[in-house]
């Protein structure tokens, strides 16, 4: 289903950038403040869904470059590997491991929970888009045929 509305399509171009930026921001601030990979992923999926509605599934797939399925696999692998890091440092699975580095004098903490969150982000976008694409590509023609269906 494509709406083919000029207003929507023009607005989408601006909105999609903002939404994607918002989603990444939400994901990164998630460790200490409200936010996180899941919420960020949902906002990111919203951006892509908006694009799908205004331009259609085919264009959305082209714009996304990565197959949603590949994104799920990628996200799962990333989350899994972030849990595996602690194996080599002598802690149980998924234990948070942190490195502190200074970039231009600012303390930046990078840790395995962050990679876990990025993994979640990709899984959420991938799953949501896979569902949306699959449902959009169906041609639904439901006609109640018996009394109970109505």
């Amino acid at each position: 289903m494509i709406l083919n509305s000029i207003i929507l399509q023009t607005a989408t171009r601006i909105l999609i950038a903002l939404l994607l930026l918002l989603s990444i921001w939400l994901m990164i601030r998630g460790h200490n403040l409200p936010g996180g990979g899941f919420i960020g992923g949902l906002v990111g999926a919203c951006a892509c869904a908006l694009y799908t509605i205004s331009y259609g599934v085919k264009k959305a797939r082209e714009a996304l470059r990565l197959e949603p399925r590949i994104m799920i696999g990628l996200g799962l692998t990333l989350a899994f590997l972030s849990g595996l890091i602690s194996l080599f440092l002598g802690d149980p699975f998924l234990t948070g491991q942190w490195i502190k580095i200074y970039i231009f004098g600012t303390l930046v903490k990078i840790g395995s929970p962050m990679f876990f969150d990025i993994g979640v982000y990709f899984v959420v976008i991938g799953v949501t888009l896979a569902m949306i694409f699959a449902l959009e590509e169906l041609e639904f023609d439901y006609q109640p045929s018996s009394e109970a269906d109505k």
């Binding site: 399925r69 590949i70 799920i72 696999g73 990628l74 799962l76 692998t77 899994f80 149980p92 699975f93």
Partner: peptide, 20 residues
């Protein structure tokens, strides 16, 4: 502890790998 988790992690990781 890792031995407890391995029966979960091995098929899970392999499944993800084949998906990917």
């Amino acid at each position: 502890g890792w031995l407890v988790l391995l029966p979960i992690l091995i098929p899970f990781a392999t499944s993800g790998f084949i998906f990917l």
